[in-house]
Amino acid sequence: MNQNVKAPAPDIFVFLEVFSSEGGIQSYVKDILKAYVSISAGTAEVFLLRDSPECQNPFASTLPTIAPKLKFHYLKTLPPSLGRLRLAITLLRCLLQQRPRRVFCGHIKLAPLVELLCRPLGIPYTVLTYGKEVWEPLPANYQKALRQADSIWTISRYSRERACAANNLDRQAFQILPCAVDGDVFTPGEKDPAFVEKYGLAGTGVFMTVARLWSGDIYKGVDVTIRALPHLLQKYPEVKYLIVGRGDDQPRLAQLAQDLGVADRVVFAGFVRAEDLPAHYRLADAYIMPSQEGFGIVYLEAMACGVPVVAGEADGSAEPLLDGKLGWRVPHRDPEAVAGACMEILKGEDSRCEGVWLRQQVLEHFSTATFTFRLKQLLDL
């Protein structure tokens, strides 16, 4: 072997946090890393501003064949400002020493730093955007970092249009990489009797939402679905609404159900472990979230389990629902429209209720294999 052959320059990923919290962004990032290591012959340095070495990192702990391709830098420090300084110093040293092919900036909050360090060195960078973090006018230095980027990735047409309108960005700079669903994890199946008993769902039609119940996230539409129940119960008195998630908005939602006289029809499941989530989807006769999403990976998860879905009509859910081909899209603050869609699902006469077909369509368009292929195209590998 020729010892003088220089190893190829690595890629660099810079994220806020990936393993110390759960959410749509974290799930999306993990999918990107998994796909990256499956298609790239090189290595990557991964900088994690808010993660610590003690976090549960499946790439390092359970995927040893992947770990050598990814070198993780854990930079969580108190106070947080010190962590940002550590990130700047460590990242600059890596840029100078290794001269990477490109840098992937995993959050808009990190974009000004990445732009500041990469541009003088002539290193191209890509900014990954997800949803509402770029839907409002950003500070001037954030906008500059986006305009100077070699490319901007986002998850849907809707997110691209919102970001462009708010920040006067060029649509041509964007490339779309939709979310993915793991069809080996989210599968159809019988309702788990233990969960049916736990939540008192025997003999009922079940509607379900998986969402953070934060007061800042009322756009998820959980309150709208609760308001839809009185309309729905007039015709289908045995239905229940299962809400998976936790947060500071739960007391308000519980009071709303009480005030509307439907408290006995609403079940707050609270936090559910990731490994139990597929079994919870299988409890549902329909997944309801009349939201304003950048994309909405939960719709993919539900449909991969063969569950029909109801989403908002003017958001990024157009992508997972294939512009309404796979599910119902309704005005996101309209309880009567939500109730109407739920009634259609309970009738079961629409092709969008056919679980086998739903799953086949979702995996055709949004499987991890499709996601990997799209990423490979973006990376030009």
Rank of each mutant, 00 (worst) to 15 (best):
P80W: 08
E115F: 02
E364V: 03
A173W: 04
V262F: 05
Q377C: 09
D285E: 01
T225P: 13
L48I: 10
Y125F: 04
P278R: 05
S151R: 08
L85S: 09
A163E: 03
V127Q: 06
G348E: 05
A339C: 07
A314D: 13
C353V: 08
L232K: 00
G296F: 14
P137Y: 11
V330I: 11
G296S: 10
C353P: 11
L96R: 12
L117R: 01
F174L: 10
L378Q: 12
Q175M: 07
V14H: 05
E344V: 06
L33T: 00
L85C: 05
P64R: 13
Q234E: 11
A318M: 08
Q148N: 05
P251R: 05
K76W: 01
K347V: 04
G122W: 01
E133R: 08
R265V: 04
R212K: 14
D150P: 08
Q172V: 01
G245I: 10
V206F: 00
L242M: 04
G245Q: 11
V210R: 15
F207T: 01
L232H: 05
H365Q: 09
L33A: 04
D51L: 00
W357Y: 15
S21W: 12
N57K: 11
R282F: 00
A180S: 12
Y142N: 07
L260Q: 13
N4R: 15
P230V: 12
R227Q: 14
I288E: 02
V114R: 00
G131F: 08
A302K: 02
E275K: 00
A166G: 06
L78A: 12
V206W: 01
S156N: 12
L78Q: 14
